[in-house]
Design a binder for these strands. Structure first.
Length: 569
RNA sequence: CGAGGUGUAGCGCAGUUGGCUAGCGCGCCUGCUUUGGGAGCAGGAUGUCGGGGGUUCAAGUCCCUUCACCUCGACCA
């Protein structure tokens, strides 16, 4: 198509509310148009990118025997009541009533709808296994959309659901899907995406992986071992601490510490380091409003995700008042008010001579030896893994913590949904069984944004050939020159006739404008027809990533370009 | 939900202790000149100053209220 007809205004100034580059470039290049917080319309270039990504996703899903289906966006609330999620999921689920006041909701994930679709169609074990998938709009009323297309409320997602008659078969398929995902990220131009072990979140289930692009703009923390294959989301990363007890355990001694509350203050007061402190953090459980006190070594942070899953309920930081019986800033394990649940983190195992709060204002203890002073207690793992920490996989001290953007996930769901929704089949022995499920998601828009985030320069995105909105950007520099125009028109129609996707710029604008717009559109191959080139009977073929720049004879132009396109240049 | 910030033309912004017809750059339209990295000159169009209420002779500016958006946190497949 001709660039002059492409609707959408490109401009050079960076929009003030864009924090990350992919967002700024997508606005500047007229890929997206803001509609409301976390809600965008897409212009043609982005829609074309979506089509290509979706085509790749479809191919890879079909290769592992996926069947594309379509599930509704609007679902009756009763479907989610059956699984229990109507109650368990919070405000991100949009609920509304139809004209008859019947409750409905907007699908944010489709396990229930998937089970509902196939429930009566797979009554015999011979129907298994199978996988259904769809590519569809989801709506999640996120508390805080951000970063352009990275975190939005309305988005397109490929979601897939597989059904199996044994854990072994689910394991097998899970592995195939894992590989299919890696293939997808490779094909769309992000081979550096890694898989990390993750938590279940609202999906429920056991084993799960997230596919992550390491990026400073990421919202997740990822723990990676530099020496083995261990990779995990911070939410589930095990934290291992190996302490050596001092030879001498000093007696527990109360010390007057006026107005010394923070870790920093304590360290300077006692002239010591945070690892010699026993820190206390208090939470309130949402389930019964009970207080939980967590004790951990002063140089570690609480991993609230791990704590939540240990407690099995939501938590929030406890506001410490008089009623709680806790002395804010001076909480310690020794003679702690017994009305709280108390947990000791692993980081305190095998320690002595610690400093801790004395449970009364302005006093601390020194010389704490937990096994001597508190007794024989169990330790749990609720601290955040740290840079340089011990790897649970290989035991090296080579853990590093990075930021990452989640580009997809795969879950083993077990029978949570089939059981709650009464989906059964008869096995070889005529026994009624619940199928075991897996589910697999990829956000299409977020993937496009991440490709832009990972593949751009100061002037615009550098789209990989496989997903670029067009394959070739044809520039007729000085289109007012009849010779240029005639030649460029001819090249355009020849390339188009050979099924090459060409965006053709024959506007009567200066070269600067033309090239800047081309940079913003990020098309991988650029062909330049200009009076200067025509004089030598040449045309120019350059790549957006600047790795290729050649002048070739005009009559070889079409073949050369087609060659590069086919090679995925 | 907590804390902070911003709303003035399509975009980026200025607008002082309230004061005349609300400006600048980019973009847009017309004409002429230019033409290999966002051209020059001349002319032109475009504003409920986020909304509502108030104070005042007078409000973009002060007060109250409300909405939207952004950032950090909380939350989150």
């Amino acid at each position: 198509m001709k660039l002059g007809n492409l609707v959408g205004e490109r401009f050079k100034e960076r929009p003030s509310d864009c924090v990350i580059d992919s967002h700024a470039l997508m606005v500047r290049g007229a890929y997206i148009k803001f509609v409301a917080s976390g809600i965008y319309s897409s212009f043609a270039p982005l829609k074309r990118i979506f089509h290509k990504i979706e085509a790749i996703v479809r191919e890879e899903m079909d290769k592992i025997d996926g069947q594309e289906v379509s599930l509704p966006v609007v679902l009756p609330a009763s479907l989610w009541e059956a699984s229990g999620r109507c109650a368990s999921v919070g405000q991100e689920l949009v609920r509304f009533a139809d004209r008859n006041k019947a409750p409905y909701l907007l699908g944010m994930t489709h396990e229930e709808a998937a089970v509902q679709l196939v429930r009566e169609s797979a009554l015999s074990y011979t129907a298994y296994p199978f996988m259904i998938y769809q590519i569809q709009t989801k709506f999640r009323d996120e508390a805080r959309p951000r970063a352009g297309l990275i975190r939005v409320r309305e988005f397109t997602m490929k979601d897939a659901y597989s059904f199996h008659t044994s854990q072994k078969d689910l394991d097998r398929f899970y592995g195939k899907c894992y590989q299919a995902y890696q293939k997808i990220y490779e094909r769309v131009g992000l081979p550096e995406v890694i898989a990390v072990a993750s938590g279940a979140g609202i999906m429920g289930g056991d084993i799960s992986h997230e596919f992550m692009l390491l990026s400073a703009a990421g919202e997740d923390s990822i723990v990676i071992c530099q020496s083995c294959q261990y990779k995990a989301n911070m939410e589930v990363a095990e934290n291992i601490v190996e302490n050596q007890k001092d030879e001498l355990s000093y007696p527990l001694t109360q010390v007057y510490t006026p107005d010394v509350q923070t870790i920093d203050d304590l360290c300077s007061f006692f002239e010591t380091t945070p690892d010699r402190l026993c820190k206390a953090v208090a939470y309130r459980k949402e389930s019964d409003q009970g207080i939980v006190v967590l004790l951990l070594r002063g140089d570690y942070e609480v991993n609230e995700a791990k704590l939540k899953s240990k407690l099995g309920c939501e938590i929030r930081p406890a506001e410490i008042d008089d009623k709680s019986g806790l002395a804010a800033g001076y909480i310690g394990p020794y003679q702690l008010n017994a009305s709280s649940d108390v947990f000791f983190d692993r980081s305190l195992e095998n320690t002595c001579n610690l400093i801790c709060g004395a449970n009364k204002a302005n006093y601390h203890y020194s010389g704490l030896d937990i096994s001597r002073d508190i007794g024989d207690i169990g330790y749990i793992d609720v601290a955040k893994a740290v840079d340089g920490g011990i790897c649970p996989g290989c035991g090296s001290h080579l853990l590093s913590v990075s930021r990452g953007i989640e580009l997809g996930n795969i879950f083993q769901l077990g029978t949570k949904y089939t059981r709650s929704m009464g989906m059964t089949y008869l096995d070889e022995n005529g026994q009624q069984q619940y199928p075991i499920m897996g589910c697999y998601g990829i956000g299409i828009g977020r993937l496009a944004a991440c490709i832009c985030e990972a593949r751009h320069d100061a002037f615009g995105p550098i789209w990989p050939m496989a997903i670029a909105p067009w394959q070739v950007h044809l520039c007729a520099v000085r289109a007012d020159n009849i010779e240029v125009k005639t030649l460029a028109d001819r090249i355009y129609s020849e390339l188009t006739n050979r099924s090459i996707e060409v965006i053709y710029d024959d506007r009567k604008v200066s070269a600067g404008v033309m090239f800047s717009d081309a940079d913003l559109l990020g098309v991988p191959l650029r062909v330049i027809i200009s009076p200067r080139n025509i004089k030598e009977n040449k045309c120019e073929v350059v790549s957006r990533d600047k790795t290729l720049s050649l002048k070739i004879d005009m009559d070889q132009c079409v073949e050369t370009v087609i060659g590069y396109v086919r090679n995925g240049k």
